Amino acid sequence: MTELTLSPLPQRGTARAALRFAAMASLVLLAACALPRSGPSKKEIYRGSIENGGNAHILFVDDRVARAASYTPSYGFGQDFLRAGQVGADEIRAGDVLGLTIWENVDDGLLASMGASNTSLTELQVDSAGYIFVPYAGRVRAAGNSPEELRNLITQRLATQTPDPQVTVTRVAGDGATVSVMGRVGGQGVFPIERPTRSLSAMLARAGGVSVDPDVAVVTVKRGGSSGRIWLRDLYSNPRYDIALRPGDVILVEEDQRSFTALGALGGQTKVPLGSEEINAIEAIAMVGGLHSGLADPTGVFVLRNEPQAVATRVLGKSVYGDQRMAYVLDLTRPNGLFLARDFLIRAGDTVYVTEAPYVQWQKTLSAITGSVATADSMASIGE
């Protein structure tokens, strides 16, 4: 009979080689699927430029670009606010409540009852047209006059009907000249404009002062269809901004809401309050812990923003229409790179993005390869 011979089982080396082959084959998938990372690379951002058919202008920051882009929207009041005169403390307005006392030099007067020498008229409210009604004097215009001027008008009217009338006018309530104070103040409310509170700073004090850090407090005044906004510290340091208030003004105190976003290979990725009126790119990076020493590419620091038309025209050196998407590139490895970053101002709404160094992706790829091979060796050892 013919003797049958069985083929030997695969040797250990053959199994390990097969697993190694499978691990290496997985690298094909790694090439097709991106490895984990913190965001796009420099090359990917560059591909979105106008020159490459994208919709963003990508500019390397030099001295000229830094100067042209150094624009910070400023707070302040327009001339209509700055030129407004103070409200007369004694001026009567619609809504005020007045009190009149009239003396007549006769025993049986027009207004006084028998045996009385005077007549008191209380709670006379100035109507929306600015008038009050006084018996025998008719409708008298009160708004725009001082109590003394109104006293003379009423005296003249009554003098034709009763001999030598004597009139006094007092303001019972001054609700006709008020402002509203809201927001982060000690006490919100509607306050009359009185002699001590005719300016913005005095009215804020009347409302209990601000209840937020003065360094980040912003004061907005709305007057009709206009509004102005200033930093609280500018109000106290510059008397010009201590504007005169007008009836109907609305005063709002808020905490500064300006911020920028930090992303990429930084010490932290978060939305960051600006905290002061101006900060530069170096300060912005420092506020989130600086560049990540194990990941960051110091040649790929980007500041992304929508630039107003006027600023974009100045930066690009040509006319453009509307806001423009800009990606400013800061290379910190240049001889003056840190100085340029220090001169480049960060604005509200900016995104500061730092790309990863090229070797980081190689490191991740090698880790994936060695990890796959180690896994293959472990599986081969188990199969022995």
Score class of each variant (00 low, 15 high):
T2Y: 04
S7V: 12
S7F: 10
P10S: 09
P10C: 05
Q11N: 10
R12F: 15
G13C: 01
A15M: 07
A17H: 11
A18L: 12
A18M: 11
A22Q: 14
A25R: 10
A32F: 08
A34W: 06
P36C: 01
S41C: 07
K42I: 13
Y46I: 14
R47G: 05
S49F: 15
E51I: 11
N52M: 14
G53R: 13
G53V: 12
G53I: 15
N55L: 10
F60L: 03
V61T: 12
D63G: 12
D63W: 08
A69Q: 15
P73R: 09
Y75K: 04
G76H: 04
F81D: 05
L82Y: 06
G95A: 06
V97R: 10
N105K: 11
V106P: 08
V106K: 12
D108C: 03
G109I: 02
L110D: 07
S117R: 10
S117H: 04
S120A: 14
L121Q: 02
E123Y: 04
V126E: 13
S128T: 08
A129C: 00
V134Y: 04
Y136R: 06
G138N: 06
R141L: 14
A142F: 12
A142M: 13
G144C: 09
P147C: 07
N152R: 12
L158R: 09
L158C: 10
T162E: 07
V167S: 04
R171D: 00
V172M: 08
A173G: 06
V179Y: 07
V179S: 03
M182C: 00
G183C: 05
G186A: 11
I193K: 09
E194F: 00
P196L: 01
L204H: 02
S211F: 00
S211L: 08
D213G: 07
D213M: 08
D215N: 08
V216I: 14
V216C: 04
V216D: 02
V218R: 15
V219M: 03
T220A: 10
V221H: 11
K222C: 02
R223E: 07
S226P: 00
I230C: 01
G248D: 14
G248R: 15
V250A: 14
V253L: 06
E254N: 15
S259C: 06
T261Q: 08
G267C: 08
G267W: 02
G268I: 05
G268L: 08
Q269I: 03
T270C: 00
T270W: 02
P273I: 03
A284D: 08
M287K: 13
L291E: 07
S293C: 01
G294W: 01
D297Q: 02
G300F: 06
V301H: 06
V303E: 09
V303Y: 13
N306I: 07
G317K: 01
V320I: 06
G322C: 13
D323M: 02
M326D: 01
Y328E: 00
L330P: 11
P335W: 03
N336R: 09
F339C: 00
I346W: 01
Y353I: 05
Y353N: 00
Y353M: 03
V354H: 12
E356N: 09
W362A: 13
L366D: 01
G371F: 02
G371A: 11
